[in-house]
Design a protein around this nucleic acid. Structure first.
Lengths: 279, 279
DNA sequence: TCGCGGCGATACCCGGCGGGTATCGTAGGC
DNA sequence: GCCTACGATACCCGCCGGGTATCGCCGCGA
């Protein structure tokens, strides 16, 4: 199977429409149809059920969509990592969510920089959920992730620490005077909605509450009294007077992990990981 | 990058010889040279240093060899899993080392078969070290691996149990009357060599001791009084009277884990894993 | 009921590229 | 100094991936 065929199939499987997929791929529809047919013939499998207006995935098609995406990511990663290796950029690229792990990250970078033989570390800040893709496609060498929010599946990881979570309320909210709360009390205490975060594919789940993309938007909406939120304790350093944080005694603990692609233990990466685990 | 280019590069990088690589790929040498040049131009990277008699990998080339193999495995896996999904083979393929985990495997299969909605499980027995590749290339859905012997990097795993290790000696060997031994005593006790297992690439490390491919060969060589060996306790069930097993009190414990490719939690697979963890 | 619009499939054509053979340039080695 | 082994270059050809035009089918609305 060629990556070209895989790209074509993934496009069609995502659009469920040959015309749109062809436009997305910058080509005409007929060769795309033919390429998919050829792929199906070679695999000996029907991947798509063509109804006269529209297309649906078969079971085999669903498998190939998932596996094909992973394979394309791996090919992409090979290319990116080779490019970076050739550019002689000796540095590491560390990706983390903007706004999270501020203090831990600072400590890690300081400690690593003090190590003999350490290399420059470029920091890549991204939106929640984007880290995984950056790591899988070779744009980054290592990531700080937060279980259970971020998926660590497929990476090698080391735990760096855990923390509790806080209920964030607008200042002046009735619940904001409480010294602490329990998960079961939250719904009664604050009738504000929770924000909705995007899924991995960029769409949002249904429900009440505004859509948010990052921590800045979230803080602003809390400040405006439109939502409540539950976040790890380490956000405390970023809070202003307009937001009150109430510890949640029984919230699931959040584990910060350092994650890297399997089989990619370069010397600088290994040193960074070792430094991190010693913190 | 196309998989064709990757396959070409991997062949050349492994052979370090354009002619041999071309023969292996079933093509002539000139188009191969050209393809590699083109790949280098597109990546903007020198992958190979061409000395007049032979070829060596550059840093970027080393990266692309490692990453490219992983990417090719992923593409291969996508193809295999799609084929199997299309064939309507509802069953799971479980791979494990021939001779290992006999009892645990039997218990697992029995327990899973008793679950409602379980599917047939095909057992694939292979030589040590081969499981990883079968799992990565989609020939198998799930594997039983033994840490620290097998690499689990890149898979999701659950631990199933640990066991100690035994020193295996030919019956009648002076050390075979001992009730137990310590690691530090073994060299003095038995001057027989250890066998040499193949590395992942199929070559053998240097040193004394005969080369072995599987447990059968190993047992035969012990019986013949040519080697000693250290193996997990569960081999006991396979031993004949010609081999004596002495517990090693301080041997590193061997952990049996069930491993599966990340992001591939089909319903039957999830059920099998859950059954395994409950054992 | 018929015409129209939207969809994927088919028919047919063309250019580029992947593959072949023949040959060259160069560097060891006897 | 010539031979040999290796990768690079030159040149050619056929196929295949891409294009345009068109068909067949179905659902829908007048």
């Amino acid at each position: 199977m060629e990556t070209r065929e895989l790209r074509y199939f993934v496009a069609v499987a995502e659009e469920l429409h040959f015309g749109r997929a062809a436009r997305r791929l910058g080509m005409a529809q007929p060769p795309l149809s033919r390429a998919i047919q050829q792929l199906e013939r070679r695999l000996g499998a029907t991947l798509l059920e063509r109804d006269s207006h529209g297309v649906t995935l078969t079971g085999a098609g669903t498998v190939l969509l998932r596996e094909g995406r992973a394979a394309l990511d791996a090919v992409d990663a090979a290319e990116q990592r080779t490019r970076r290796a050739a550019a002689g950029t000796a540095g590491l690229v560390l990706v983390t969510k903007a706004g999270a792990t501020g203090e831990l990250l600072a400590k890690l970078l300081d400690a690593y920089a003090a190590e003999p033989g350490s290399v420059p570390v470029e920091i890549l800040l991204c939106r929640p959920g984007e880290q995984e893709g950056l790591l899988r496609t070779g744009r980054a060498d290592v990531a700080l992730l937060h279980r259970p929010f971020d998926a660590t599946s497929g990476f090698d990881t080391e735990e760096l620490g855990t923390e509790g979570q806080l209920l964030l309320l607008p200042a002046g909210h009735p619940g904001s005077t409480r010294p602490h709360v329990l998960m079961s009390e939250i719904d009664d205490l604050a009738d504000l909605p929770m924000p909705r975060w995007p899924r991995h594919d960029g769409t949002y789940p249904d429900g009440p509450g505004p859509e948010v993309l990052d921590a800045t938007q979230l803080f602003q909406l809390i400040t405006l009294g439109r939502i409540r939120a539950i976040l790890p304790e380490s956000v405390r350093t970023q809070l202003t007077g307009a937001i009150v944080a109430v510890p949640i005694l029984d919230a699931p603990r959040v584990t910060t992990v350092i994650a890297w692609p399997p089989q990619s233990r370069s010397r600088p990466l290994a040193a960074l990981i070792q430094t991190a685990t010693r913190l």
